[in-house]
Design a protein around this nucleic acid. Sequence first.
DNA 1: CTGAAAGCGCTAACAA
DNA 2: TTGTTAGCGCTTTCAG
Lengths: 334, 334
Amino acid sequence: MRSSTIYDVAQAADVSTSTVSRAFSAPDRVRAATREHVLETARRLGYQPNPHARALVSRRTQTVAMVVSDITNPHFFELIRGAELRAKASGYTLVLVNAEESPRIELEQIQRLTRSVDGFLLAASRQPAENLLQLAATQKVVVVNRRVPGLASVVLEHAEGCRQMVSHLASLGHESVVYLAGPQNSWMAASRWAAIRAAAAELGVHARRMGPFTPTVASGGAAADAALTTDATAAIAHNDLLAIGVLRRLADRGVRVPADVSVVGFDDIFAADLCTPTLTTLGGAHADVGRAAVELLLTSMDQYREQAPQLVVPSELILRRSTGSARTSDLSDR
Amino acid sequence: MRSSTIYDVAQAADVSTSTVSRAFSAPDRVRAATREHVLETARRLGYQPNPHARALVSRRTQTVAMVVSDITNPHFFELIRGAELRAKASGYTLVLVNAEESPRIELEQIQRLTRSVDGFLLAASRQPAENLLQLAATQKVVVVNRRVPGLASVVLEHAEGCRQMVSHLASLGHESVVYLAGPQNSWMAASRWAAIRAAAAELGVHARRMGPFTPTVASGGAAADAALTTDATAAIAHNDLLAIGVLRRLADRGVRVPADVSVVGFDDIFAADLCTPTLTTLGGAHADVGRAAVELLLTSMDQYREQAPQLVVPSELILRRSTGSARTSDLSDR
DNA sequence: CTGAAAGCGCTAACAA
DNA sequence: TTGTTAGCGCTTTCAG
């Protein structure tokens, strides 16, 4: 059962194929009456445009790809959801791609898709900036939660957020904090550390960095152990997953949170409000980030703007039970 | 900068376009030496096949769509991940589609994609069976966590799982349980209730059903309140999200879990091991479900098999802290 | 084993 | 406003 084509519709409606084509893709270039007639017969024949034929000639696929570093990280759920909704609203399809925390796989997947999508959303990309710039030379690209000079980007605010975080800890009497860093090649990890370090200096708090750690619950054990070798009374984990792993390990070792040590994370994932104790974390409207990123991508495809806008979505420090007053003596005493 | 086509390669390699085409899509129909030569020049020119041109004539898109009822439900993460990995392994791209818990949106999205994918994975579809059968008449379809006579399906085992669940509760002295049901048109909800009811009857436990409830944390409040109007000493929630919402509401109302009432869920999401108390739940290898579903879809596209296999992936009852001995007096006493 | 040639279904000049 | 026509890049008979 071959499905009907533009020819069938043209014949049935007694117009030319281009009129049918226009009725669908440029409605205002057809007289209202004919358009109606065409659309009606199309409906009657169950005609649906073939996206591949369309893409072949128009070079637009109505599809965007979103590459995430790890599809199972709950942090991405809202991001994906926001992006998906926004894409759908403009008749675009979102293809989700998992980089499995591997820069190599990330690049392979991107290459595989260059011909089948109109643009890329790269979330927390681990590629060196030069790779991204090179990609952007031939593809529309928006980087998410990363900033690259010359590329359009959307990031969740974190410089000020980190400052608030350190300030919150300082006000609780913490004089030494440790940042349990994310992956080596993560822009976010570097950027957060810079902000934390600056805020700490400003507030007279001692800050050190340890790691890198894979941002998973499993890595939290090692991260906690590392933190305990220092005099820090507060640990800032690269994300909530790592923070939850830290909480687990601390509980196992009999270290009380927040009585002995405070712990904070990033992302405000769903589980941050469920773990014990509940987790203080830097959250924000991740769905808005996804939405904005798609929007940037779509507008950068329509108009010919070369500004490479850099959007920032506000963040919010969520205070929960994992932070409290600093102990007088330090952790390594134990 | 027009990217190179099959013509460029043909010319550069001094062969015909069909030979180039074959070198890529039917390697064994080209002499090894020519194939090598073609592939080499293709590489040199940076040639990559245009998937749309290919799809237009071959009618295969190398893409499958996975429709999930709610993309933010953590239960789907592993499912998606398994499906994505399996698809990639065969050179297929997975398009993720969110039905936003709406049968109408689900159908719209499916229709939108019929021309651009080779098949559909429908996870927890809320469509009436007839719609699915009708869809399957023109598209390759595998339903996931649902069974429809005549359609290929993969489900996580739950009949025996429900029996174990009820048996676990019975052995703790629970004589009356309540199932807090999922959405009205959810096959899973109906199927679980049937299994729970049967197991309860067999074990001399009284079982009732309440609901339907939207399977979210937010709905857990209403579900908990409903459960407390009964004499049940154990509540079986449709999924972990609902169960977590129930735990919250019970804590707010001062009802102790499991001292006063036991709670169990389904899915074993990440958060089930983080909430307080940790949640007893029916888990399983969700990634395997996703993997198997894609595999079924791909093989059903290759060979011409009309058996519509119905796969079952084993489940596992995970005992945690939310279940314990039944109180002697019932809940509504309070 | 390889080549020639006819489309796949649609869009986009260009004409009328 | 509408029609004619030439491809988009590839696969696939059909010959050789």
